[in-house]
Computed example of a mutant assay.
Amino acid sequence: MTTETKPANQEKKGAIELTAAMVLSGTLGVFVIESGASPFNVVFFRCLFGTITLGLYCLVRGFFKNHNFTPKKLGLAALGGVFIVFNWAFLFESYEGTSISVATVVYHTQPFYVVLLGALLFRDKLTATKFGWLGVAFIGLILVAGVSASDLTGGGDTAYLQGLGYALLAAVFYAISTVITKRVTGVKPHLVALVQLVLGIFLLLPFTALSEMKNMGGDWGWLVGLGVIHTCVMYVLMYSAYQKLPTPKIAVLAFVYPAVAMLMDWAVYGHSVSWLQALGIPLIVAASLGINLGWSFKGRRPAAVQQAAPKAPAAGSTTTTESKIEVQSGGNR
């Protein structure tokens, strides 16, 4: 096999892995709803079963040897975990008030909060082009939300507005976790995720109503699936893919997640978005890709982006789901 063929095969494998991970992500909402458990209970057991399976994977792969954690890195990983765990809880809560489709699309505005937080906390340059894309995303958000004047004056569906609020709050929490976890360098992303899952068990225990789980019966399978499939398997696929793919491909394939989520919401629950809401989806997608890939409104990429093509991280580098690509949709879902 030539040296040219090998990277091409690796990239193809990475594309398959990431596509599979995003397809799994798209089914997450169905597992949450079908479990019948409250959002905090769902997240608690996702953390519990995810810790067991991801921990075993890390043990078998020998990731605990030379883990490179320092007290500071461990503290940052844990702090990021606080926000990522509650991000899950608020996202799952938003499904009940809105729908999987609307909540997922609204949640996908989180990359723009990462940009805003970077500008606010680290004085990252917020160029006119980035500001323009943020404006496009905001217009898309308004359309997707489908909020009318009566909703805002108290005459609308209160539960729906609360659901939108939870989805937005989940997106903000995800963005905060992204900014924090990006500073954890030199540690396997699987280990960072494992720390956050372990933390989630203890963090959510006071909010978990274990008495509600007595008569779950076969519905336990949905919760086990969330821990095994949507946490361990999905993370392993994503982290493996990130090693093989350039940033542009990751950015594009990330949108398989909301597409599948909307398809599942329609197929299983008969939910669909209105034509007006549908107009906002391509605006959010275009804005996300525009910021991530350095698109300008003149149709040319900035020189800095053209000169430095993104590279996949080295095997030993830290690239958590949150830190590999800032403006992707999803991350640690």
Score class of each variant (00 low, 15 high):
Phe40His: 14
Phe40Tyr: 13
Asn41Glu: 15
Val42Phe: 03
Val42Asn: 07
Phe44Thr: 13
Phe44Gly: 08
Phe44Cys: 05
Phe45Ile: 12
Arg46Val: 14
Cys47Leu: 09
Cys47Trp: 06
Leu48Arg: 05
Gly50Tyr: 06
Thr51Met: 15
Thr51Cys: 15
Ile52Asp: 07
Ile52Tyr: 04
Thr53Cys: 09
Leu54Pro: 12
Leu54Val: 08
Leu56Gln: 00
Tyr57Asn: 00
Cys58Met: 05
Leu59Lys: 07
Val60His: 01
Arg61Trp: 01
Phe63Glu: 04
Phe64Trp: 03
Asn66Gly: 14
His67Asn: 13
Phe69His: 01
Phe69Gln: 04
Phe69Trp: 01
Thr70Gly: 05
Pro71Asp: 15
Lys72Gly: 03
Lys73Arg: 13
Lys73Cys: 10
Lys73Tyr: 07
Lys73Ser: 14
Leu74Asp: 15
Gly75Arg: 07
Gly75Pro: 03
Leu76Gln: 12
Ala78Gln: 09
Ala78Trp: 08
Leu79Phe: 03
Leu79Pro: 00
Leu79Tyr: 00
Val82Ala: 08
Val82Leu: 14
Ile84Arg: 09
Val85Leu: 13
Trp88Arg: 12
Phe90Ile: 03
Leu91Gly: 08
Leu91His: 08
Phe92Ala: 02
Glu93Ser: 15
Glu93Arg: 14
Ser94Ala: 14
Tyr95Asn: 06
Gly97Thr: 10
Thr98His: 02
Thr98Ile: 01
Thr98Asn: 04
Ser99Lys: 02
Ile100Val: 11
Ile100Ala: 02
Ile100Tyr: 01
Ser101Ala: 15
Ser101Arg: 12
Thr104Gly: 07
Thr104Asp: 08
Val106Phe: 05
Val106Leu: 14
Gln110Phe: 14
Gln110Asp: 12
Gln110Arg: 06
Pro111Gly: 08
Phe112Thr: 06
Phe112Met: 13
Tyr113Phe: 15
Tyr113Met: 09
Tyr113Asn: 01
Val115Asp: 01
Val115Ile: 12
Leu116Phe: 12
Leu116Glu: 09
Leu116Thr: 13
Gly118Thr: 07
Gly118Val: 05
Ala119Lys: 00
Ala119His: 05
Ala119Ser: 07
Leu120Ile: 14
Leu120Gly: 03
Leu120Asp: 00
Leu121Cys: 12
Arg123Trp: 06
Asp124Tyr: 00
Asp124His: 07
Asp124Ile: 02
Leu126Cys: 10
Thr127Val: 00
Ala128Arg: 12
Ala128Leu: 08
Thr129His: 12
Lys130Phe: 07
Lys130Ser: 11
Phe131Pro: 08
Phe131Gln: 15
Phe131Tyr: 12
Gly132Val: 09
Trp133Glu: 10
Leu134Met: 06
Gly135Met: 11
Val136Asp: 04
Ala137Arg: 14
Ala137Ile: 10
Ala137Asp: 10
Ala137Gly: 14
Ile139Val: 15
Ile139Lys: 14
Gly140Asn: 13
